[in-house]
Amino acid sequence: MVLAQDEDHGNKHVDLAPSIYRQRLVIEGRRELPIGDKDIQEYLSQLSDVCGMTLLIDPVTHRSDRFGWAGWVHWETSGAHFYAWESPLVFFSVDIYTCLAFEPSTAVSFTKSYFDATHITSKAF
């Protein structure tokens, strides 16, 4: 096995599988009201349609007493994770990873609207 090591400690990304399409989007936001499991399940189901993805299983959620709600959805072309905090502030973070192209701005607009977010930010890569 050959391991590649970046001389600048991670500032340079090397695409180890250029023949495999990958797209990622992180969306983070704040809102007034806490987010519960039903909100997460419905959001991830609708996000699937918004991004043009095929669901393989219904969204799954779990609550940590320490950190709050989390959810995940499995798509035929990868999936998305959702994390929701209630403390120290109401905050959410969505990680989308796919092997099928989708429009990031559509996912961000949908997320902002769905959660009535007071603040939202995103990064596509």
Score class of each variant (00 low, 15 high):
7 E>P: 01
7 E>V: 12
8 D>I: 02
8 D>E: 14
9 H>F: 14
11 N>V: 00
11 N>Q: 10
13 H>Q: 08
13 H>F: 12
14 V>F: 14
14 V>C: 07
14 V>M: 11
15 D>K: 04
15 D>C: 04
16 L>F: 14
16 L>Y: 06
17 A>M: 13
18 P>H: 06
18 P>T: 07
19 S>G: 00
20 I>P: 01
21 Y>W: 05
22 R>T: 13
23 Q>I: 03
24 R>K: 09
25 L>P: 11
26 V>N: 12
26 V>P: 07
26 V>L: 10
26 V>D: 07
27 I>S: 08
29 G>W: 01
31 R>D: 10
32 E>T: 14
32 E>N: 12
32 E>S: 14
35 I>G: 09
35 I>D: 12
36 G>V: 01
36 G>E: 10
36 G>S: 08
39 D>P: 10
40 I>R: 02
41 Q>V: 10
42 E>R: 11
43 Y>T: 06
45 S>H: 04
46 Q>K: 15
48 S>R: 00
49 D>T: 13
49 D>K: 10
50 V>C: 06
52 G>Y: 04
52 G>V: 04
53 M>K: 08
55 L>I: 02
55 L>N: 06
55 L>V: 01
55 L>Q: 12
55 L>D: 00
55 L>H: 02
57 I>T: 15
57 I>F: 13
57 I>K: 13
57 I>R: 12
58 D>M: 06
58 D>G: 07
59 P>D: 11
60 V>T: 10
61 T>Q: 04
61 T>K: 03
62 H>G: 13
63 R>T: 06
63 R>D: 11
63 R>K: 14
64 S>E: 11
64 S>Q: 01
64 S>N: 13
65 D>L: 03
65 D>I: 01
65 D>R: 03
65 D>Q: 09
67 F>K: 13
67 F>E: 13
68 G>E: 04
68 G>W: 01
68 G>T: 08
70 A>H: 05
